[in-house]
Simulated assay, not measured.
Amino acid sequence: MRIKALKQVKSQIELEFPSREDAKIVLRSIEPEIRGSPSERTSTEIECQKNILKITITARDTPSLRASLNSYLRWILLSQQILELKH
């Protein structure tokens, strides 16, 4: 019998917004996606510190990490674009 050890991969990014309020608006807009993670193979933590949005994604493998990261970045970009229309 051969046992393969699974090694998790992790990525953390920080996105700076013009204001704390903008960062919080974007965070609230993607919170539903956080609760329903894009994949069962990943877990995501997002926090807002002042005007910085910190995203930490832990995944079972690199393809899952990449897919999850791309999803969150698309949602954040869309939220940011909508926010800019408001200003």
Rank of each mutant, 00 (worst) to 15 (best):
I57F: 03
T62A: 09
L53E: 02
S64H: 00
T62P: 00
L77M: 13
E47D: 12
D61S: 13
Q81F: 06
T42Y: 09
R74D: 07
S68Y: 13
K50A: 12
R66Y: 09
C48E: 08
I57H: 07
A59D: 12
I55Q: 04
I57Q: 00
T42F: 12
W75S: 15
T56I: 04
R74M: 11
K54H: 06
R60L: 13
L53A: 07
L78Y: 08
Q80D: 11
T42I: 05
T62Q: 15
L53W: 00
D61I: 02
T44W: 08
N70M: 02
N70W: 03
R66P: 04
Q81C: 11
L65C: 08
K54C: 10
E45V: 08
S64F: 02
R66S: 09
K54M: 10
D61P: 01
K50G: 10
N70T: 03
S79K: 13
P63S: 06
Y72L: 13
T58W: 08
L73H: 05
S79M: 09
S64R: 08
A59H: 06
I76Q: 07
R74Y: 10
N51L: 04
R60Y: 10
T58E: 15
L73K: 15
S79D: 02
R60S: 09
L78Q: 15
T44I: 02
L53Q: 04
E45G: 10
R66A: 03
I46K: 13
Q80F: 13
K50D: 15
S43W: 11
L77E: 15
L69H: 15
T58N: 11
I76S: 12
P63I: 00
T58S: 08
C48V: 01
Q80G: 10
L73E: 08
I52G: 07
I57W: 00
A67K: 11
L69R: 15
Q49S: 10
E47R: 13
L65G: 03
T44Y: 01
E47I: 08
Q81E: 13
S79W: 06
T42V: 10
L77A: 15
L53C: 04
T44P: 06
I52F: 14
T56E: 06
N51V: 03
S79Q: 12
W75T: 00
S64D: 05
R74Q: 14
T42L: 09
A67F: 08
A59I: 02
L65P: 01
I57P: 00
A67T: 03
P63Q: 06
Y72R: 09
N51D: 04
I55P: 00
C48K: 00
T58P: 05
N70G: 01
S68I: 05
T56P: 00
K54G: 07
L73G: 06
E47C: 13
S79H: 10
S71T: 04
E47V: 06
T62S: 13
W75H: 10
I46P: 01
L65M: 11
I76P: 05
P63M: 06
R66L: 15
T56L: 09
E45F: 11
A67H: 02
L65A: 08
E47F: 10
Q49K: 12
R74V: 01
N70H: 04
S64N: 01
K54L: 11
L65T: 08
Y72P: 03
L77T: 05
R74W: 10
N70S: 08
S64C: 01
E47N: 10
T58Q: 12
K50E: 15
S68H: 14
D61W: 02
R60P: 00
T56S: 09
K54S: 11
Y72S: 06
R66Q: 08
S68P: 05
K54D: 02
